[in-house]
Design a protein around this nucleic acid. Structure first.
Lengths: 109, 109
DNA sequence: ACGATATATATCGGCGGCCGACCTATCAGC
DNA sequence: GCTGATAGGTCGGCCGCCGATATATATCGT
């Protein structure tokens, strides 16, 4: 499966503990520094795709304050994919930093 | 403008020096460790969008070995966007590493 | 001489992910 | 009673990605 940045963030949001949909939205917003706000359509589309790919799975339902929470957790496969993608991102960021460090900003200072 | 990963890589490929289309494809492949191979449709679509957004601009045409090369270069605005996006990526990679259990090295990395 | 590969440009249509709009429902606060 | 936050989900449109296709030149192997 192709990991887009949004899908990656959802995986990352599930890394430390199982979360329900709305919790994933909040965690992604926090992880991205407020930059990425998942809409409902985006979230459930990604969640379905992650489950289909075997990267995540349902982890029970709980009723809290009269509201249903549907939890999701990472599978081992999903954790591997997350680790690999994180390594790829880190390597890219390192390369980019090196490239930008050696080249001063052109034009108006 | 929304910066996808492919568009980001194209910007990054233009960071150190102006390149022509085919050169960008090769540089992106190198920068991504062979993972990202831009097709023609992807490349010229991105290039047009970058120019429209004021992030890149044409930088002359040269004929080499009977083949036309159309060069592109970053604008100052594009360079700023690239720097900002790189910082965002680096921050995300750092957060992800910490979350996955990677112990941050004290002092020099 | 011929075909395959690499270089170099560009267009086009399909696929699919993203996203906002919308719907239902409960609870807290004004 | 209304609004906003919490919690679930569907749906249609927009648009970026990508392969296929077209055109053209230079090179290399057979």
């Amino acid at each position: 499966m192709r990991l887009t940045e949004q899908a990656y963030l959802v995986l990352l949001a599930l890394a430390d503990e199982p979360r329900h949909g709305y919790g994933v939205v909040q965690e992604v917003r926090a992880l991205s520094g407020g930059a990425v706000r998942l809409g409902a359509g985006t979230l459930y589309g990604i969640l379905d795709r992650l489950v289909s790919a075997g990267y995540a799975e349902g982890s029970g339902e709980v009723v809290v304050d009269g509201r249903l929470r549907r939890y999701y957790r990472l599978t081992p496969t999903g954790h591997d994919a997350l680790t690999a993608e994180t390594a790829r991102l880190a390597a890219l960021a390192r390369r980019a930093d090196r490239l930008l460090g050696g080249v001063p900003r052109p034009g108006i200072a």
